[in-house]
Design a protein around this nucleic acid. Sequence first.
DNA 1: GTCTATATAATGATAGAC
DNA 2: GTCTATCATTATATAGAC
Lengths: 216, 216
Amino acid sequence: MRTAADDLMARARIRNAAIDLFGREGFGVGLRAIAETAGVSLGLIRHHFGSKAGLREACDTQILEEIRAAKEEQFLEGDPAANMLRNLASLEQYAPMMRYLIQAMREGGPLARQFVERMIADAEEYTEKAVAEGVIHPSRDPGARARFLTLAMLGGAVVTAALDEDPEPQRSMRRWLDQMTLPALELYTQGLLTDSSMLETYMTYMKDPPDGAAGA
Amino acid sequence: MRTAADDLMARARIRNAAIDLFGREGFGVGLRAIAETAGVSLGLIRHHFGSKAGLREACDTQILEEIRAAKEEQFLEGDPAANMLRNLASLEQYAPMMRYLIQAMREGGPLARQFVERMIADAEEYTEKAVAEGVIHPSRDPGARARFLTLAMLGGAVVTAALDEDPEPQRSMRRWLDQMTLPALELYTQGLLTDSSMLETYMTYMKDPPDGAAGA
DNA sequence: GTCTATATAATGATAGAC
DNA sequence: GTCTATCATTATATAGAC
C-alpha cells in the first residue's frame, strides 16, 4: 500500500525539498543540494520548473497556499495575529513554512511583501474590532499603529533568527515570542512614559512643522 | 596639494569600497566588484586581506570604530538610543555605516550580534536612568523590556529595508523611523489595552504554570 | 605594493539519450 | 518523466612577474 509520501510526484518532492532547504539555508542554496535532497537529478528540476527563479516562484505559491490553510485552522479561535504566530511557531507541522517565511522576510521579495502586508491588514482589522469592543484604546492613526506593531513583532523575530547561533529559525522565533510576551504585555498595559508631554509636543510639532522639515 | 581622499592607501580604499558594496548589495557581492570599485586588482585584495573573510573582518572592525566615534558625537546630547539612530539615519555622513549595519543584521554574524547587544545594553542603561528620574514606568523585568524594545525597533528597520523596493537601506530606515514615531509615542504614552487583566492573568499563569509547559 | 595569469571549485543552464 | 553529460559563467584562491 502506498503512503501519502509515496504518492508525491517528483515535482512536489522537489518543491518540498526546495522549501525545506530555502528555509534552512536561505535562497542562495544550490539546485544540486535540492536535487539531492529530493532524490532526483538536476535535469529534472529544470524540466519541471525551468529555472531556479521558476522553482522559487512555485515555492512561494505553495507557501501562500499553506498560509491560507493554516489561517483557516487557527482563526477559528478568533485569536489576534500574535497568537496565531505563537500557535504556528509551536506546531512542528508548520516548521517548514515558518522557516521559509523568516528567510523570505530576511531576503525580501514578493512573497514576503505580500505576507507582511496581509499581516498588517489583519492586525488593523483585529485592532479595529477590539477598539469597538472597548478592550483596546483608539489610535490617532489606526493604520500606522497596526503597521508599527506588526513590523516590530515580525522584525524582532527576523533579527533574533539572524543573530542566533541556532540554525533553526523556528526555535529562534519561539524564543523571541517567549521573551517578548512579558515586556509586550506590560508595555501594552501600562505604557512606558509617565506623562503625555512628549506625545503632545510631537503632535503640536507635526501640526505646524518648522519649514517643510516633516520628512527631512 | 593632496586631499584626504588621495591620501588613502590602497588598503583603506579597498576596505571602504567593500563597506560600500557589502552595505548596498549584501555580503554575497564578489571580490571582483569590490576590486573594480576600489580601482585595484583582485590580487591586491588578497595581498592585503588574505581572503574574503579577512576583508569582511576588517570591514567589521572599521564599522565598530565608526560606531564608537559616531556615538561619542551623538551621545553628548544625552538622547535615547532611538534618537541616536534617527540622527545617524539623517546624516549622509553615516550612510555607509548604516547600510552596512542593516545588512549585517539581515545576514547575521559577530558584528551584528555585538552591535545589537550593545544597543540593548545602552537601552537598559538609559531606561534605568529614566525610571530613576520618574519619566518612565518601572518594569517587572527591565532587561527583557530593553531587549524587546530594541529588537522591535531594529527589527522593524531591517524588515522594512528587506521588503523595500528602494535599494537604499538608509532611506528605508528613515521611513521606518518616521512612520513609527507617532504610533510608538502613542503606545508609550497610553498603552494599548484598556485594562490590566491580560497582564495579571499572564503573571499568575507564569507563577504557577500547568505542567512544565512554560516553554512548550 | 601592485599587477597578470591561472587553478580549482561551484553555480545555473542546456542538449540529448532513454 | 527522468537521467547523464557538458557548457558557460562566476567565485575565491594561488603563483609569480615587475
